[in-house]
């Protein structure tokens, strides 16, 4: 390991320790805030461990809530990918598809994902469907946009090369335009994942019977700040985990280039 790496890791560890230290100092030692407004880090940690097995007060363990959130988020997210990416590619590749889809897309594009929540709850209730739909609308926009932009980056000279070798238009799409677009498409899926995760938590906060957002909302009702913080931590951990998985996929798929050059 290089010396500068060691120094960097040391600084990172230091910052976490300092943060926890100050938190501990303000709550447990100096008692600047009452314990049930902001619990100390030790208390949060013990609640975190406890919540793995304890379904009280919201009727589910931490893993059950995580599982519920992930299930809904991934359902909507995968739908967004399966529909959004091909649609974006087709819009960029075929002028008529673009003309046909564009007016509706331009209308939907600026609507924040969470603005769909009330309508979806009215239509689908507070089960999986409504939340998956909200996630879908949040995630599909970056999928379409980035695929579209990516295909548009195709270099003319690359198409010429294919033409001099006698490539058909389909070959040009699959062998040139899509490989050109891949880094952009991967960036799109990353942005979409962030949007999906925001949307699911927001949807659960507003109307739900399971999930991390629901758990936080329940804890708020009975003033359990420690559970609120545990919920927030779990949201962060899941998000980071999903991003890391996507990073690995990206490295496998995108070769010969940085993902955003």
């Amino acid at each position: 390991m290089k010396k500068s790496d060691k120094k960097g890791i040391f600084l990172s560890v230091l910052s976490v320790i300092a943060f926890l230290g100050i938190w501990y100092l303000c709550t447990k030692v100096l008692k600047l805030v009452p314990e049930n407004t902001l619990p100390d880090p030790v208390k949060v940690f013990s609640t975190f461990v406890d919540k793995f097995t304890n379904p009280n007060p919201d009727g589910g363990t931490l893993l059950q809530h995580m599982g519920a959130s992930l299930q809904v988020a991934l359902t909507g997210y995968i739908m967004a990918i399966v529909i959004g990416i091909p649609l974006g590619i087709l819009m960029a590749w075929n002028k008529y598809v673009d003309r046909f889809v564009r007016p509706i897309f331009d209308l939907i594009k600026p609507i924040p994902g969470v603005a769909w929540i009330p309508l979806m709850i009215v239509i689908f209730g507070i089960g999986l469907q409504s939340k998956a739909a909200v996630v879908f609308f949040s995630a599909v926009v970056p999928c379409i946009l980035n695929s579209y932009t990516g295909i548009r980056q195709t270099k003319e000279v690359h198409l010429w090369v294919a033409r001099t070798f006698g490539g058909t238009r389909n070959q040009m799409l699959f062998k040139i335009a899509i490989p050109t677009a891949l880094p952009y498409i991967m960036t799109g899926t990353r942005i979409a994942l962030g949007a999906a995760w925001v949307a699911i938590v927001a949807a659960e906060l507003l109307g739900s019977t399971r999930g991390l957002g629901f758990m936080i909302q329940q804890a708020r009702g009975i003033y359990r700040t420690d559970i609120i913080i545990v919920g927030m931590l779990a949201i962060g951990i899941c998000g980071a985990f999903l991003t890391a998985v996507l990073g690995i996929i990206e490295r496998i798929v995108v070769k010969g280039r940085k993902s955003n050059d």
């Binding site: 270099k155 000279v157 690359h158 010429w160 090369v161 033409r163 001099t164 070798f165 006698g166 040139i176 490989p179 050109t180 891949l182 995108v254 070769k255 010969g256 280039r257």
Partner: peptide
């Protein structure tokens, strides 16, 4: 129209960045 009996080396760099040297050369 263009055809495989004519080969072109272009003025600008025109290699496919997502293919290796081998992948580019065997493309035709």
């Amino acid at each position: 129209e263009p055809g495989p009996d004519r080969g072109v080396v272009f003025q600008s760099i025109s290699l496919y960045p997502w293919l290796t040297v081998m992948g580019n050369v065997e493309y035709g």
